[in-house]
């Protein structure tokens, strides 16, 4: 049986119905739980504000995750390739990756003040570990015969890294990127509630303080939808970049 593409929307629509039901039943006063239509109205009334804050959050995530990619992937390729580097850095990586980026907010504010910088640093850290670890994992999983082919052919280290190690690790790198984008998005919202004066996190907190519950809900919805679209985006790029994988794995979505 073929299931339609948009069947994933069904539970979400169900949730909205449930929400509308709860509003009608007046389980909570309308000042706490605004009706779906009212929240929808907020997108009209505060459209500019929502858009500006969404762009601010997206920009921070793009910069932070971009930096994490540029640092994490090459470092992961080298650490995965050379056992010496692995032994040197393994304990450090395991120590630092256990620290939730959120717990570093106070320190980031001391060092960088209030603004973009502390947020970007935290997003960078949130994205770095999944990218680094998945890249290392991908390099380690490479088929040994392929490295033997390269060695027997007399291939130099640069060619091996670029033509063999990198493409072999690419599916895992995309898994890392998926986790990094997800983690970065979680982190940006939290960081904006504390250390920044713009973005979706700031907007939600501000809406609470100025008592605009419909804007709180609108912000939450935007966060969820952007998270979903971000994940779709990463998966799409992955399918393009790893098309050679089709037919090799049971579930190469």
């Amino acid at each position: 049986m073929r299931i339609g593409r948009f069947v994933g929307l069904v539970p979400l629509l169900g949730l909205i119905l449930l929400w509308q039901g709860a509003v009608w039943a007046q389980i909570y006063p309308p000042v706490l739980l605004p009706a779906p239509m009212k929240v929808l109205g907020a997108f009209g009334g505060h459209g500019g504000e929502i858009l500006a804050n969404t762009m601010a959050s997206l920009q921070r995530v793009a910069i932070g995750i971009g930096l994490a990619f540029v640092v994490g992937v090459p470092a992961g390729l080298l650490i995965g390739r050379f056992a010496v580097l692995d032994r040197l850095f393994d304990w450090s990586i395991q120590t630092f990756r256990s620290i939730p980026p959120i717990s570093l907010i106070p320190m980031a504010m001391l060092f960088f003040g209030i603004g973009d910088q502390p947020a970007i640093v935290l997003i960078f850290l949130a994205g770095l570990w999944p990218l680094l670890l998945n890249t290392i994992f991908g390099v380690r999983g490479i088929e040994r015969t392929l490295l033997k082919v390269a060695a027997a052919a007399g291939a130099g280290e640069a060619l091996i890294l670029r033509d063999i190690i990198l493409p072999a690790a690419l599916p895992n790198i995309f898994t890392g990127l998926r986790l990094a984008v997800g983690g970065g998005w979680l982190t940006v919202v939290t960081a904006e509630m504390i250390a920044v004066k713009s973005g979706l996190g700031y907007m939600i907190l501000n809406a609470q303080m100025t008592f605009r519950p419909e804007l709180i809900f609108a912000g939450i919805i935007v966060i969820g939808v952007v998270g979903l679209l971000g994940d779709f985006g990463v998966q799409r790029i992955r399918r393009l970049a790893c098309s050679w994988q089709e037919g090799l794995t049971a579930n190469a979505t």
Partner: peptide, 9 residues
């Protein structure tokens, strides 16, 4: 090699 060692990508 027996398992050909072709690069799938």
């Amino acid at each position: 090699f027996q398992d050909h060692g072709l690069f799938p990508w």
